[in-house]
Each structure stands twice: as structure tokens, then as C-alpha cells.
Computed example of a mutant assay.
Amino acid sequence: MTITVSSVQALLPSQAPSGAEGPRLVIVEAQPLMREGIAARINAGLPSARLVYVGGSLHAALEVVMATGCDSAIIGTRCEGPITEVVAASAFAMHGIPSVVLVERPSVQGMEAALIAGAAGYIANDCAGDEFIRAVETVINGGSWAPIVEMYRTGLKSTSVQLSAQERRALVLYASGMTQDAVGRRMGIKPCTVKHYLDRVREKYAQAGLAPRTKLELHALARKEGLLP
């Protein structure tokens, strides 16, 4: 049974049709026309899918996920409030939910940040309908979808400062807006270990003539290094 956008917005999780089958999806997109378009593509390409949440609030989407479960999340180009796609992808990943990130202009840096945060798919929001559906199906089935992966492998700029994989991941997550506690939960480590990684990042850049002290300075540094879009 296909659930339309209007019916999804009116339904509480417990009101979903009992006979509905197929993957359970959430759509997080703050722009009404955009999220209606995403939902329409899902309805057309995956008619068995259950849209258990369609809206702009990450918090509301996570409440639905915890109450009803979910097989995949689709993160649009805008979320309500100061929430980036990186933070949203990380939040869903913490609940074991793979996500597909839709972006206006795909980039190597944006893809790396999204994948490090836990997204399983990264794709342009104006991609062809069949490509969008293939991406969603691939992620639902446990795979990953990043069509610019070759660009990522060959185009990522090298830096004079060599960070370990964990230092790099901690920097990206923290600079994207997460707290040290949240970064620790996402990485499966203690907050004090996150602080240690961030201190090491600061030390390495200080040795290179930079001195990022504040979170804002780390964010600017991560963008300059191509780690954040």
C-alpha cells in the first residue's frame, strides 16, 4: 500500500496501516516542496515502502525511529534549525539507521564528511529518478552508494599535516557541530579520548604554524583542508 505525503504527516506511528509491508523510511527535509518531491519519488519507485515520517525536524524523525523502527533515512538539503547533513547522518548512524544524503552540489569534501559521519549514500538531489531509487534500495539492503567515489579517491587534496584516521574522524564530527560527548558516542570511545584526539590535532597544526584553539577555528580549518563542505 502506498502512503502519500499528506497521510504520512497526519499519521501517528501506531496509525500506520497494519497490512503495509516493505521498508520503513523517514524523510528529513525542511523545504515543503522538496520533501514532497522526495516522497513522490519514493511512492513511484518503491510503492511498497512505508514512509513513517516526512518532515523537517531531525528530533521528531528520531522519535519516530525509536518508537517504530526504520530501515533507512533520506536526508534532504535542509533540516530545521542549525542541523547539517553531517550531524543528521551521524544521529541516524548512532541508532543503526543507514542514511542517504541528498545535496544540491555534490563534492569530494562533502562526500567525505557525510561518509565519515555514518551516511551510507551520497547523491545529488536532482539525479535521475531511477538512480535515486537504486541508491535508496542499495542502502536499505546494506550497501553504500557514492557515485563520485573515484573523484574522492583521486581528487582529495593532500595536506602537510598528517592526521591519523581517528584524529581526522574526531575533527570532522566535532567541527561539524557535535559535542565531544556526541562524538564519543558516535565513535564508540570515551569523551576524554575524543579530547585527546582533538588536542593532538591542535598540536600537529600548531607545529605547522597554525593554532586552532576554538571550535569555530577548528571548523574553519576543516573547511580549508577540504574535510568539510
Rank of each mutant, 00 (worst) to 15 (best):
G96R: 06
G96C: 05
I97Y: 00
I97G: 05
P98V: 00
S99Y: 05
S99L: 04
S99D: 03
V100S: 06
V100D: 02
V101D: 02
V101Y: 05
V101K: 04
E104P: 00
E104N: 03
P106W: 10
P106M: 07
P106Y: 09
P106L: 06
P106K: 09
S107E: 08
V108R: 13
Q109K: 12
G110H: 05
E112T: 08
A114H: 08
A114K: 10
I116D: 02
A117I: 01
A117S: 03
A117H: 04
G118S: 03
A119N: 07
A119Y: 12
A120M: 06
A120V: 01
Y122G: 00
Y122V: 07
I123T: 05
A124R: 07
D126E: 07
C127M: 01
C127R: 09
A128S: 12
A128M: 05
G129R: 04
D130A: 13
D130L: 08
I133D: 05
I133P: 00
R134C: 04
R134T: 10
A135M: 04
V136G: 13
V136Y: 14
V136E: 14
E137M: 11
T138G: 12
T138C: 15
V139A: 15
V139C: 14
V139D: 15
S144V: 13
S144G: 08
S144F: 07
W145C: 11
A146H: 13
I148S: 13
V149T: 12
M151E: 12
R153K: 11
G155M: 01
L156I: 05
K157H: 15
V161W: 13
L163T: 00
S164K: 11
Q166E: 14
R168E: 02
R169K: 11
A170Q: 07
L171K: 10
Y174L: 12
G177V: 00
G177H: 10
M178Q: 06
D181V: 15
A182G: 00
